[in-house]
Design a binder for these strands. Structure first.
Lengths: 244, 244
DNA sequence: TATCTATCGATACGGTGTATAAAAGGGTGG
DNA sequence: CCACCCTTTTATACACCGTATCGATAGATA
């Protein structure tokens, strides 16, 4: 049985790279499994994270993973918690409540930028892993000992929850807008060229006058600006309820 | 080839119901397809919405659907837009900007309550269907002619976007918390009994002092209360930025 | 009525998560 | 040192998925 040569590789050994260091077939661990899953997700998207592929990346059969996980869902939870770990390891949160909440939000946003699949996994599943709890604890702590909140633990919880809700929703917005361009094989201008005529035609029906004004007159700021403005808005709301 | 009898049915014709009026094998339409998909999703969850099952519900082969859709993704988009249609058909939005935004948020929340799968489909995909645009138009319109916003279309867009982001994030929170109990075959108390000891053990490590306080001292209000408080908070933030 | 064409359906392919059971491996008792 | 048992790993298999391909079929047109 002759091996089919891979045309993508050079024919000469000398300029052919070594077979990208496969992880030694040695012992497995949850950490290594999650690591492989993260790499796969970062490189090829969440859809490519299948138990078979993750296992293959570790030179193992799919069923081997079931010694460490009992469900694919658990693998996904571990992936989310691993990212929370990255966020927590950036160090403690400094500043008064407003700065604290803002930097929590920015950390999440950075994590979602680094791992575009994160936001998809954050929705639809509660975050109970140790790192997620640590992240939450950090948020709560930096609020609970700030002038204004004092002992009102309910207000702290409410504030953190509201900001988190906004952050998740806003990141989803960004993600779905960016993904629609990139995910479907099109590049950005291709997608714009595909959807803009549609929007323009819809507007031409006259049924969406305000939308038309948005389309024509509005300055469409960068994602980050929109995110920060909305965040400031939420923070203003918290501030307003604080001094009462 | 003898047909295997379905044990769930009575053996006697007399008390056996007629085969629940299958939709005549007649002509298909996008509307009928989406309707079948909605029914399936409402009854058995989003995971049961497969092209095969949807087609079967219409007495058709799976491939038949590809005359009306070119992808399962398109079916999902149509489902979302159908729900937007329900929301829009509840009539125009009344009141000044604050009431308007509040009722938009509540409409979305009601829709998500009626269709638990909705929030899963709202994330990860832009809402460009005609009904989604109508819903957005309604929001924008009711803000753009309200004292305070006046001509500032950017402010209108920002306000609507922020509220929408919060709503989606908050609904995701509710959904994932509720789903964790119901979705995994457990009922509510089962799930609580499964997770509470874990949380308690994590707290016992002493690494989460603030979380511990939340667990013990906080009053855990109903979902709706939390939602409304957060919403009011966001609205306060908008109000604060308005008078400036 | 005959032919063309658009639609539909059967089949098939490659993929998925995971249940089941055989195989292999390592540690322990005889 | 061998035989046994138990745990870990692997092979196989199942049911299901989205959808590409292509022959059958039926409706419309010449």
């Amino acid at each position: 049985m002759t091996q089919k040569p891979r045309v993508s590789d050079s024919a000469l050994v000398w300029e052919r790279p070594e077979p990208s260091s496969r992880p030694a077939p040695g012992p497995l661990s949850r950490e290594r499994i999650v690591g492989a899953a993260l790499e796969l997700a970062d490189a090829e998207g969440l859809a490519s994270v299948s138990l078979r592929k993750v296992a293959a990346a570790l030179d193992a059969g799919p069923m081997r993973l079931y010694g460490y996980l009992s469900t694919k869902e658990e693998l996904l939870e571990l992936m989310v918690d691993a990212v929370y770990g990255e966020m927590v390891s950036e160090g403690p949160i400094r500043g008064a409540w407003r700065e604290a909440l803002r930097s929590m939000a920015h950390r999440t946003r950075q994590a979602a930028a680094k791992h575009p699949w994160l936001i998809d996994l954050m929705v639809g599943r509660p975050h109970l892993g140790p790192n997620a709890l640590a992240h939450l604890e950090a948020s709560l702590a930096s609020l609970s000992d700030t002038p204004g909140f004092g002992e009102d633990i309910d207000a702290v919880m409410q504030a953190v929850g509201t900001v988190n809700a906004y952050v998740v929703g806003a990141l989803r917005n960004e993600a779905s807008e960016q993904r629609a361009t990139l995910d479907s094989g099109m590049n950005k201008t291709q997608w714009q060229n595909a959807t803009e005529p549609y929007i323009r035609r819809m507007i031409a029906t006259g049924r969406f006058p305000t939308l038309a004004r948005v389309f024509q007159d509005a300055t469409h700021p960068a994602f980050e600006v929109v995110f920060d403005k909305g965040l400031d808005c939420v923070l203003d709301g918290i501030a307003a309820r604080l001094k009462r």
